[in-house]
Amino acid sequence: MSALLEVSGVSKSFDGFKAINNLSFAIAERELRAIIGPNGAGKTTFMDIVTGKTRPDSGEVRWGENSRSLLRMSEAQIARAGIGRKFQRPTVFEDQSVEANLIMALKAPRGPFAVLRWRPSAGSRARVQDLAAEVGLAGQIRRKAGELSHGQKQWLEIGMLLAQEPRLLLVDEPAAGMTLAEREQTTTLLKRLAETRAVVVVEHDMEFVRRLNCKVTVLHQGSLLAEGSLDHVSANPDVIEVYLGR
């Protein structure tokens, strides 16, 4: 099984603080993976490095069949290569309609001149309708995203990620601030997404991770602490020490 994303020996420090320390990580296609770890374990920095927002001090990040290095690519190029990212706080374009948000996210040429020539087609309209329906915003398509409720914005952002059709989806704490029913819904969605693409969920809610029922990677102080099924890592004495205190 060849890896879709392979991170090897990556380190990054900010003003002497080692956020990521010689971290290696790999994920295969159509895999669901949870990354857990206490605050400051380097989860967000890890996502920043993969998406190109932060350049690591050392190490290598490789992507896809040809093992292209992501380190020399910009955020936009990485996104176009097929890595989508869902932020912790919902970030949608609040001044624009749900439809415009989704159209922007639709998989299509991204260059300025290609976008200038772009016209809505029957296909694109149908796709936007489908996506809106899938995330429960079919009735709100003309509304401005800024008027949506917090939960609806979360869903709109997920809809935009779906529209992007990424091969790897990085999801940052999806369960934060959600009701129980919404969590249930989110779990189902993530599991379904993982059937067609790789999904990495960063979370520190153990209950939520248990529900995902997938392989778990535990980070601590920027390094890999343990990896395996949730039951396996929960039994690891190091993990217990980190989570329960010494």
Binding site: A76, Q77, A79, F93, A100, I103, M104, A105, R110, V115
Partner: peptide
């Protein structure tokens, strides 16, 4: 759509980058 993208850049350019727009 072009207008959509530039207005999105005005409001939140980091997010636009993660959508794959340069």
């Amino acid at each position: 759509k072009f207008g959509s993208v530039i207005r999105a850049i005005r409001d939140d350019e980091a997010r636009v980058r993660f959508l794959g727009y340069s």
